[in-house]
Deep mutational scan, measured.
Amino acid sequence: MTSCHIAEEHIQKVAIFGGTHGNELTGVFLVKHWLENGAEIQRTGLEVKPFITNPRAVKKCTRYIDCDLNRIFDLENLGKKMSEDLPYEVRRAQEINHLFGPKDSEDSYDIIFDLHNTTSNMGCTLILEDSRNNFLIQMFHYIKTSLAPLPCYVYLIEHPSLKYATTRSIAKYPVGIEVGPQPQGVLRADILDQMRKMIKHALDFIHHFNEGKEFPPCAIEVYKIIEKVDYPRDENGEIAAIIHPNLQDQDWKPLHPGDPMFLTLDGKTIPLGGDCTVYPVFVNEAAYYEKKEAFAKTTKLTLNAKSIRCCLH
C-alpha cells in the first residue's frame, strides 16, 4: 500500500463567511444568496454554514464600524470581559468565536472560507496562513488546477512579526479568498463568478477527501510576504508620492531593483532599492491607505505537500 500522510479526520463542519468587511460585496451577495438557497454549497455528509460576519458594517456598506474585524481574533480580544464599552467588532468577534470556535479547541469548525474583495488587480487569490499544512496545500492545488487556465495565486502570510489574527483563524483550516479588482461597494459579475467557482472547487475537494480519495504528493507556487511598504510621506505625515503608473495593476509581476515604484507630484520617480527582485501584491489597495500600506513585497517559492487521505471509520 502506498505510504501517505493521513489527515486527522474527515471534514464535518464548514463555514463560509461574507461581510467580514461590509463594503466587499461579492461575499456579502453570495452568502445572502446561499442563506436563501444553499443547494449549490451542500455536499453529502458535510455541514456547510453561510454566515454574515459583520452585519452592521454590511448594512452601512462600510469596511467596519469601530475597528477591523479581520485583525482582532487574538486571545487578548477574544478574552476581554464582555461589555457595551467594547468596540462593536470586538464584541462581534467574541460572538463569532462562540459560534464557530472556540479558537484553538477541538470544537472549532474544521474549515472557514472568508470571502473578500480587493481594489487591487490580484485576480483569484487564496490566502494561506501555514506553509506546513498538507491538507490546505492539497486543497489549493486542486482549486488552482480546477480553475486553469484562469490564474489563481496563493498568498502566504506566515511571518515572524506580522500577526494578522484573522476572522477565519478560529477554524482548524483557515482559508482566505480574495478576488479583484473590484471597487468597494460595487458588485461585478465576473468577480462574483470567479469567487463562486473557487468555493465550488473547494467544496468538491472536501467531498472527494471525505469519500476516501487519496491525493498524491503535489507542489504549489506561493508568494510569501516579506514586508509592507508605506507611501513616501512629508514631515507632516502626508502622502508625498503615489503608486507609479508602471507599478499600478502589476500585482504578482516581478519588481526589480531600480524599477519605478512611486511618483511625486513634481514628476520624480522613486525606484525600488535593494538588490532583490520582489513580487508586489495589494498594490494601491483602497482599504490600506489608513493602514499606511502602499503594497506588500513578496518572494516566490514552492511548497510541497505529502499525499493525504481521509481516515475512514
Rank of each mutant, 00 (worst) to 15 (best):
258 G>R: 07
261 M>V: 15
248 Q>N: 01
231 Y>E: 03
246 N>H: 11
150 L>F: 09
22 G>F: 07
284 N>I: 04
75 L>G: 13
31 V>M: 03
161 S>Q: 13
183 P>K: 04
262 F>V: 03
97 N>I: 09
266 D>P: 00
43 R>K: 06
131 S>Q: 09
219 A>F: 08
261 M>D: 00
235 E>T: 10
194 Q>G: 10
147 L>Q: 02
196 R>P: 06
146 S>D: 05
133 N>L: 01
245 P>G: 02
164 Y>T: 15
184 Q>T: 12
59 K>Y: 09
259 D>W: 00
272 L>E: 00
312 L>Y: 15
129 E>V: 06
53 T>N: 06
306 K>P: 14
60 K>H: 13
304 N>I: 09
266 D>M: 04
257 P>L: 02
250 Q>T: 07
94 Q>I: 13
287 A>D: 12
282 F>H: 15
232 P>T: 03
193 D>E: 13
233 R>T: 12
67 C>N: 10
103 K>E: 08
176 G>H: 15
196 R>C: 03
192 L>A: 11
34 W>Y: 08
144 K>G: 00
187 L>Y: 00
241 A>E: 06
265 L>G: 08
6 I>R: 14
247 L>N: 04
276 C>Y: 10
141 H>C: 01
57 A>L: 05
111 I>S: 02
310 C>V: 14
126 L>K: 04
138 Q>C: 04
178 E>W: 15
148 A>V: 07
31 V>D: 06
181 P>H: 04
90 V>T: 11
88 Y>A: 07
213 K>F: 13
41 I>Y: 02
187 L>T: 07
130 D>V: 01
223 Y>T: 06
5 H>C: 14
191 I>N: 02
45 G>D: 08
123 G>T: 01
228 K>Y: 11
197 K>Y: 07
97 N>Q: 12
52 I>T: 05
230 D>R: 09
251 D>G: 05
195 M>G: 07
201 H>F: 11
247 L>I: 09
305 A>F: 04
14 V>I: 09
249 D>E: 01
191 I>G: 03
306 K>S: 13
305 A>Y: 06
122 M>H: 06
82 M>A: 14
122 M>D: 05
291 K>C: 09
222 V>N: 06
46 L>W: 01
169 S>Y: 06
263 L>C: 07
15 A>C: 03
228 K>D: 06
63 R>I: 01
221 E>Q: 07
269 T>C: 09
173 Y>W: 10
165 A>D: 13
249 D>M: 00
155 Y>H: 13
22 G>Q: 09
125 T>A: 12
81 K>Y: 12
135 F>Q: 04
268 K>W: 00
89 E>W: 02
136 L>E: 01
42 Q>K: 11
125 T>F: 08
177 I>A: 04
246 N>F: 09
178 E>M: 15
83 S>T: 14
305 A>Q: 04
266 D>K: 08
46 L>I: 12
133 N>Y: 02
68 D>F: 00
254 P>F: 00
76 E>G: 13
286 A>T: 08
89 E>K: 00
308 I>Y: 01
286 A>H: 08
141 H>F: 02
93 A>G: 12
172 K>R: 12
123 G>L: 02
291 K>Y: 07
22 G>N: 07
313 H>Q: 08
12 Q>P: 05
236 N>K: 13
120 S>C: 12
11 I>W: 04
184 Q>S: 13
17 F>A: 07
92 R>H: 07
70 N>P: 07
283 V>H: 05
109 Y>S: 00
170 I>E: 03
89 E>R: 02
57 A>F: 05
240 A>C: 15
280 P>S: 00
61 C>M: 13
50 P>K: 00
286 A>N: 07
313 H>C: 11
156 L>V: 07
115 L>P: 00
225 I>T: 13
127 I>Y: 12
199 I>W: 03
289 Y>L: 14
216 P>E: 09
281 V>K: 05
17 F>C: 10
53 T>M: 07
287 A>T: 14
198 M>E: 04
76 E>W: 10
46 L>S: 00
285 E>Q: 08
55 P>V: 10
104 D>W: 12
169 S>Q: 10
81 K>P: 15
191 I>F: 06
52 I>A: 00
133 N>H: 05
22 G>K: 08
296 A>E: 08
105 S>I: 10
233 R>C: 11
39 A>K: 12
308 I>W: 00
86 L>S: 12
7 A>V: 12
171 A>V: 07
15 A>G: 15
124 C>A: 10
288 Y>V: 11
181 P>W: 05
207 H>K: 15
150 L>Q: 14
171 A>D: 04
108 S>F: 09
191 I>L: 12
48 V>K: 03
21 H>G: 07
13 K>C: 01
192 L>M: 13
176 G>W: 10
64 Y>A: 09
100 F>P: 05
57 A>N: 01
198 M>D: 04
63 R>K: 14
38 G>F: 10
32 K>M: 05
212 G>W: 00
165 A>F: 10
62 T>S: 13
239 I>V: 11
82 M>W: 13
31 V>Y: 06
18 G>R: 04
28 V>R: 10
274 G>E: 06
220 I>L: 14
76 E>D: 13
257 P>Q: 01
10 H>Y: 10
101 G>M: 06
20 T>V: 04
109 Y>E: 02
299 T>V: 15
241 A>S: 06
125 T>V: 11
214 E>A: 09
204 D>C: 02
81 K>V: 14
54 N>P: 07
128 L>I: 01
104 D>L: 13
305 A>R: 04
119 T>D: 01
133 N>S: 12
187 L>A: 09
131 S>P: 14
24 E>L: 05
212 G>Y: 00
252 W>G: 07
41 I>Q: 03
51 F>I: 10
9 E>T: 11
279 Y>P: 05
168 R>K: 12
111 I>F: 00
219 A>E: 15
145 T>H: 10
19 G>V: 03
174 P>I: 11
160 P>N: 12
41 I>A: 00
8 E>S: 13
240 A>K: 12
197 K>H: 10
233 R>K: 11
26 T>K: 05
280 P>H: 06
53 T>R: 03
142 Y>D: 00
304 N>P: 09
11 I>N: 00
33 H>V: 00
207 H>Q: 15
168 R>E: 07
253 K>R: 10
159 H>Q: 14
169 S>M: 07
118 T>N: 08
261 M>H: 01
264 T>V: 02
79 G>D: 13
228 K>F: 10
310 C>F: 08
13 K>D: 01
219 A>S: 15
69 L>A: 07
173 Y>Q: 08
16 I>W: 03
123 G>H: 05
174 P>F: 14
79 G>M: 14
164 Y>R: 15
187 L>F: 03
119 T>N: 10
50 P>G: 00
85 D>G: 13
212 G>S: 01
42 Q>W: 09
269 T>Y: 01
134 N>E: 15
85 D>E: 13
42 Q>T: 11
246 N>P: 02
190 D>F: 04
149 P>Q: 00
66 D>C: 07
31 V>H: 04
299 T>Q: 14
114 D>G: 01
292 K>A: 11
70 N>Y: 06
68 D>S: 06
38 G>H: 11
151 P>H: 07
272 L>I: 07
211 E>Q: 14
58 V>P: 04
258 G>S: 09
137 I>Y: 06
238 E>K: 10
61 C>N: 13
205 F>K: 04
39 A>F: 10
244 H>R: 00
250 Q>D: 01
237 G>V: 03
311 C>G: 15
301 L>Y: 08
11 I>T: 01
14 V>P: 01
302 T>A: 06
19 G>D: 01
65 I>K: 04
260 P>Q: 02
236 N>R: 12
94 Q>Y: 10
149 P>T: 01
58 V>A: 11
60 K>A: 14
38 G>M: 15
134 N>P: 12
170 I>A: 08
30 L>R: 03
16 I>N: 04
101 G>K: 07
205 F>L: 00
3 S>H: 11
29 F>R: 15
313 H>G: 15
209 F>M: 00
128 L>N: 04
69 L>F: 08
174 P>C: 15
272 L>P: 01
177 I>H: 05
264 T>L: 05
220 I>E: 02
62 T>L: 12
225 I>D: 15
162 L>R: 15
164 Y>Q: 15
103 K>P: 10
291 K>D: 10
28 V>C: 15
117 N>E: 08
313 H>F: 09
138 Q>W: 06
24 E>Y: 02
307 S>G: 13
251 D>M: 05
46 L>N: 03
169 S>L: 00
161 S>I: 09
158 E>T: 06
146 S>C: 15
297 K>E: 03
67 C>M: 13
225 I>N: 14
196 R>D: 04
9 E>S: 13
87 P>Y: 02
104 D>K: 14
23 N>A: 04
237 G>W: 00
288 Y>Q: 14
26 T>H: 04
21 H>S: 10
20 T>E: 00
165 A>I: 09
277 T>H: 04
116 H>I: 00
232 P>L: 01
